[in-house]
Amino acid sequence: MSQLNIVATLKIKPEFRGAFQTIFKKLVEESQKEIGCIRYELNQSIDDPDVYIVIETWVSKQAINNHNLTPHFKAFASFAKDHTEKLDICIAKQVL
């Protein structure tokens, strides 16, 4: 299987901006060190400061599965569950 891309869009609750900065920083830094991670970046909407887009590229589905088991991802997912207004995740493969 070829590499896979993930685009995760989160709308955070404004009262948790500061807390998200800390958890996003750890998530990105630790994820970029993982075996199988090609790209892991955090973007912020220029129209809404509470909307963040995480763009990831992984070598395989197994690399994504391994990532989802890491302590930094689990901590992020647990926090995001109760502190976001909306979360959309799309896993895609490049076709062209």
Rank of each mutant, 00 (worst) to 15 (best):
Q21V: 07
I53V: 15
M1I: 06
R17L: 03
W58L: 01
L69E: 14
D82H: 04
T70L: 04
R39Y: 10
K26G: 05
Q44M: 09
H72V: 05
S31F: 00
L42R: 12
T9G: 05
K86W: 03
F73D: 10
K26A: 11
E41H: 11
K61N: 08
V59A: 05
N66L: 09
Q62W: 02
L87P: 11
L27Q: 03
Q62K: 15
K26T: 12
S45I: 00
G18A: 10
I64F: 08
K74G: 00
Q32Y: 01
T57P: 03
L87S: 13
D50N: 15
A80G: 06
S2H: 09
T84H: 03
F16L: 01
D48E: 06
W58V: 10
I38V: 15
A63C: 09
I53L: 09
F20E: 04
F16V: 01
K81M: 00
N5R: 13
K33S: 10
L96R: 15
D88A: 11
T22C: 02
F20Y: 14
K81G: 04
Q44F: 02
Q21Y: 08
K93N: 11
K93I: 09
P14D: 01
K81R: 11
K74N: 03
M1L: 08
Q94E: 15
S60V: 08
